[in-house]
Amino acid sequence: MTKTMKETTPKYDVKIHSIHPEGTVRANASVNIHGDFAVRGVKIMEGTKGLFVSMPSYKSGNEYKDICFPCTKEAKAEFDKAVIGAYQQTLEQGQKTAYLQEASSPQQEQGQPVMGGM
């Protein structure tokens, strides 16, 4: 049996729902895998070694257990790369938007119209 492109190359559609500039939880996300499977409740966390992805979990006694998770080290690395990449892209877009808004502020203060990009 030969693997199709869909089976060999996972396609992750990551949506960043909220960003938190302070604290250990940096963002909340959902991930759609191949358009076939959705994972809600994914968190981007700030740890002592940098950012990492936390899967949805439940508490059992004194420990947390993931509800769903990639089954191989390679799949976990690819999943994490997609989620953290989407988070970083969202941050960059936010910085660009803030920069453009800041750059247009002096024009607004002087009473000059600002051209919109819609």
Rank of each mutant, 00 (worst) to 15 (best):
T2W: 13
M5P: 04
T8C: 13
P10H: 10
K11P: 00
K11M: 09
K11L: 14
I16C: 05
H17Q: 13
H20P: 02
H20G: 04
G23V: 06
G23A: 04
T24L: 09
T24C: 02
R26H: 08
A29T: 08
A29C: 15
S30N: 14
N32W: 01
N32F: 00
I33M: 08
I33H: 07
H34L: 08
D36S: 08
F37L: 01
V39W: 03
K43Y: 04
M45T: 03
E46K: 06
G47W: 03
K49H: 10
L51K: 12
F52N: 04
V53Y: 04
S54P: 00
S54W: 09
M55D: 10
P56E: 05
P56K: 06
S57E: 09
Y58M: 15
D66R: 14
I67E: 11
F69L: 05
P70Q: 10
T72N: 11
E74S: 08
A75K: 15
K76F: 03
K81S: 13
K81G: 05
K81Q: 15
A82H: 00
V83P: 05
Y87N: 06
Q88W: 04
L91A: 00
L91R: 06
E92M: 11
Q93R: 07
Q93A: 02
Q95A: 10
K96D: 11
T97H: 05
A98G: 00
Y99T: 02
Y99M: 09
E102T: 05
E102P: 00
S105D: 09
S105A: 10
S105G: 00
Q108S: 12
E109N: 03
E109D: 12
G111S: 05
P113G: 07
V114E: 10
V114L: 11
M115G: 02
